[in-house]
Design a protein around this nucleic acid. Structure first.
Lengths: 364, 364
DNA sequence: GTGAAAGCGCTAACAC
DNA sequence: GTGTTAGCGCTTTCAC
């Protein structure tokens, strides 16, 4: 309780509160950390002084002294192109909004789970590498964090994960000593494919995927391949078409392309279009309607993800439901577990998915 | 570069990196804070040592020393009831998901804007008060933060806002020295009401609101009142009905109640139901369909918010579009401005809304 | 361009 | 139950 006798300029500290309430800084600290360890009367004195002074404990100082932050983090990819956004029309903006749902749901899931465990959530979209990247900023301010696949350079992760728990989400296991969580992409698409073939008797199936560096889309395509193979159908070596961002617009485009392809040439039109995600499937639904092609009478359409939209479009979309929010929640559980037991062996979870049969494939 | 000569157990620090690369800790710090102020050769040495050691700068130590965190915060209300969630059916879960959209979008907006300014975002749903509340944790770890209305006790805010910038979102101005942002709830509902009356010639309008402590719903109701008064229609003194959480389920219930009311008694059925938000309106649409009441032929239905769902339901919902994401973005702008100029007078923004005319009111 | 030294505000033993 | 005393790991003048 010495020093610091000169004019107040900056925010009040424990010293100020201690002085004003006539106790030591340790007691002030206790009041905030463990109120029950302080006599009620003393506690009141301290809290009143704090109120009068406008005291707010410094999280940084706390973190430094206690070596924990009480915060978990999430790094996700920077999907949106800010320039494109400015010029975007209203409908595009809506589309964009829907695209973001994925990370939104993970955020939601993590936030919930984090809160249950008494943590707050620090989120940041990846920008670039370098010493002063956002990732580094996050890493330094949390007790552990989750990373969406292809967000942070593997080398950075390698370094960071030596110092605090990191869990990889929805992607290939780039670093094998990290916990990681995926959804059963392959199994889901395989089951969906089986359903179309066996239950609806469809033969000519077209899978619309994404760029090759999209691990989810690729895994789903593998499921499609397996489904074809299981049924004794020809197994395509690559998707019928590849979209870039997997948006509604691109789905509409893809549907049109597939239709044109069969009209111009003598090629038979596919009996089903399996899209790598719901966004594209929804766009396709609209494009098909515009062209007067009926779903599912003329052609079946399926998606993947199980976003809210899929239930609401007409016809309702048959899809594979991904437990995205659970992904976020599980990420937190893994983080919390590892924080409690740093020595535990790396865990690899695969979350189950389920085929949701709706009208767009011919089901009730 | 003295002390710290004993066995390494914890994470490497500037001292370790400095020692290993043969420079002072000040230089290590410079490499991370301002790489250009260090000779390239020196910088390389440092970065290599850091890499080898697995060095990650401590955000807490940085924050403490520099008195800034590079993080902005958001506190939002804890809508979801964890217990109810467990028992929730699939459809309810979807509903819940949609309800969360509001804070999700604010998060998204803030995250974007924050990123543009080089900030990360710390989010936390409010729990309770007391010294160790999540709010206090957030407050201590950020340079400034936004608060959704009715999330944090006013008294806490009073104290906290004396030490760092706080902006209030979407609610009454509880503390007048704070920046705050609202959307034009009253104007929007008023214009919507005018549209129904003047353009569609409707007279018997029913407004379905929420509990009285919901400032948004109340403001919208006032707009409804003004619209009625403007048209020379009788001005109801309170909403026809009040829902609690403003969910789809409650909207469906409300629609049913209104229908029953007119059937049982001789009261004429309203020509239009104006719901205080889209969620309820969507639920009402479904309830109406089940009861064989046609929209908009038999009755017009409108919402408020402009969520993606509103565009997709059948018939598409006439609503008032709220720029929710902009709300988040503006919050960050205000925070950043105030950080740059703490002395600036408190700002109060009202974001414009726009009536989106769709089929559910009889348009297009 | 680089180093030395002084804190930043708090927690955590350890005494009393 | 409360006070004392060291740091926690970094940034930041100020010299050189």
């Amino acid at each position: 309780m010495k020093k610091r006798t000169v004019g107040r300029v900056s925010a009040p500290t424990v010293y100020d509160v201690a002085e004003r309430s006539g106790v030591s800084i340790a007691t002030v600290s206790r009041v905030y950390r463990n109120p029950d360890s302080v006599r009620a009367q003393t506690r009141e004195k301290v809290m009143e002084a704090a109120r009068e002074l406008g005291y707010v404990p410094s999280g940084s100082a706390r973190g430094l002294a206690s070596r924990t932050t009480g915060v978990l983090g999430l790094c996700f990819p920077d999907y949106a192109d800010p320039d494109a956004e400015t010029a975007a029309a209203a409908s595009d903006a809506d589309d964009d909004q829907a695209v973001m749902l994925y990370s939104d749901q993970i955020i939601r899931g993590m936030e919930r789970a984090a809160r249950r465990h008494g943590y707050a959530l620090l989120i940041a979209a990846s920008l670039d590498g370098g010493p002063e990247s956002l990732v580094a900023k996050v890493a330094g301010r949390v007790d552990g964090f989750a990373v969406l696949a292809r967000t942070v350079p593997t080398e950075d992760l390698e370094v960071i994960s030596r110092r605090l728990p990191v869990v990889m989400l929805a992607g290939p296991r780039e670093i094998d000593h990290l916990d990681h969580i995926v959804v059963a992409n392959t199994e889901g698409e395989r089951e969906l494919t089986r359903h179309l073939i066996e239950d609806h008797g469809l033969r000519r199936l077209a899978f619309i995927g994404s760029e090759e560096n999209s691990p989810d889309a690729e895994a789903r395509f593998r499921g499609f391949q397996e489904g074809c193979r299981d049924a004794g159908l020809p197994v395509p070596s690559r998707p019928e078409l590849r979209a870039g961002m997997m948006t509604q617009a691109e789905g509409a485009l893809a549907a049109g392309t597939l239709l044109d392809r069969s009209e111009g040439t003598g090629v038979e039109r596919p009996e089903a279009m399996l899209f790598a995600n719901d966004q594209m499937a929804v766009g396709a639904l609209q494009a098909l309607e515009r062209r007067g092609v009926r779903v599912p009478e003329d052609i079946a359409v399926t998606g993947f993800d199980g976003i809210p939209l899929s239930r609401i479009v007409r016809p309702p979309l048959t899809t594979v439901r991904q437990p995205i929010r659970q992904l976020g929640e599980q990420a937190v559980e893994l983080l919390v577990q590892r924080l409690a037991d740093p020595g535990r062996a790396p865990v690899s979870l695969e979350l189950p998915v389920s085929v949701t049969r709706r009208a767009s494939c011919g089901c009730g």
